[in-house]
């Protein structure tokens, strides 16, 4: 059953449309990924769902509540760990988390126990009475994520929860997010990290420039990319236009994307059979190959399929 549905959800800042007629349906109990480059409109979408900002057009239902009509009720179902840690006037992680838990209505015994648990699990217990102002970005981020792990809201929103956190820390947080889901929360995860979206999400919505491109399970999205295989080629020189055209004519090659003039990504079937043909083509064109790599499509390829850009390129724009 859908716990969140958005109907043409739109947010404009002046003339600029940050979120553009978004239609999503998020199932109860799933981990729902919102993947897109910086500026895609993920955070703006989440802020509307938490009733922090109002939509310019359209609406969303959180549980049974329309966010534009019953924001006070909708808000009670949701908790959010922000992209930029929000830690001001209370100074130590211990105070920040206790205050948060208190406002969220946890009893004092529950509060003590959960705050201790979260600080310990996230490796912050030793530093619990230090000022958050002395903390690194990664440590602040962990305090921010801890809020949601303690609150255990019906709908838990995490906005880029592992940026600036080392790989061990990332895995720990991913496991804690999974555990939160197993205890009954629905999770919305906004991220620009392909791997994070891929391994954590039951379903992923890919956004670009405020619009929804596609939404499905990571596996189905990747399978939907024509050609089950992928070859990445880096050349010593720039590939000429006609070489790319010839490449496309090879049977079983489905598509060719030039990430850079000398860096090609080839989508195809039965890569191992076609590879000799491809190398031969470049030899004939007198284009030495610097490196060659075979892999399977990732969510980046899904993004590229719809936009003609990799997520990294889209972020540069």
């Amino acid at each position: 059953m859908a716990i969140i549905r958005t109907f043409d959800l739109t947010k404009k800042f002046g003339e600029f449309t940050a979120v553009d007629h978004l239609n999503l349906s998020i199932e109860e109990g799933e981990i729902f990924g919102l993947l897109g480059p910086n500026g895609a409109g993920k955070t703006t979408t989440l802020l509307m769902l938490t009733t922090v900002i109002k939509p310019t057009e359209g609406t969303a239902y959180v549980g049974e509540y329309d966010i534009t009509k019953e924001p006070d009720k909708a808000r009670r179902l949701v908790g959010m760990a922000f992209q930029e840690p929000k830690l001001m006037w209370v100074m130590t992680p211990w105070d920040v988390l206790n205050w948060h838990a208190k406002v969220c209505g946890l009893s004092s015994s529950e509060r003590k126990q959960r705050v201790k648990w979260a600080l310990t699990e996230l490796g912050l217990w030793e530093d619990r009475h230090k000022s958050v102002h002395t903390f690194s970005g990664g440590m602040r981020k962990r305090v921010e994520v801890a809020k949601i792990l303690i609150q255990r809201p019906k709908i838990a929103i995490v906005d880029e929860p592992t940026t600036q956190i080392d790989i061990v820390g990332k895995h720990r947080i991913w496991n804690m997010i999974r555990a939160l889901r197993d205890e009954g929360s629905t999770i919305i995860l906004a991220t620009n990290e392909l791997y994070e979206a891929d391994i954590l999400s039951d379903r992923v919505a890919i956004m670009h420039r405020g619009k929804l491109l596609v939404c499905d399970s990571p596996k189905k999205l990747k399978d939907s990319i024509v050609g089950g295989d992928l070859i990445e080629l880096v050349l010593e020189k720039e590939a000429a236009e006609n070489t790319v055209e010839e490449l496309k004519k090879i049977e079983k090659v489905v598509d060719v994307l030039a990430i850079k003039p000398n860096h090609l990504r080839i989508y195809l079937n039965h890569a191992e059979e076609v590879l000799p043909q491809i190398t031969e083509l470049f030899m004939k064109a007198r284009l030495p190959i610097r490196s060659i790599r075979m892999s399977e499509p990732s969510l980046d390829d899904v993004f590229a399929h719809y936009t003609g850009l990799t997520i990294e390129e889209a972020e540069k724009q």
Partner: peptide, 22 residues
């Protein structure tokens, strides 16, 4: 003055997201 300081630090958004009525 706290209100301005909160806005500067983005804490306003946090307060508005808390599960309490306005």
């Amino acid at each position: 003055y706290d209100i301005y300081e909160e806005a500067d630090h983005g804490v306003t958004e946090y307060l508005l997201s808390l599960p309490v009525s306005r």
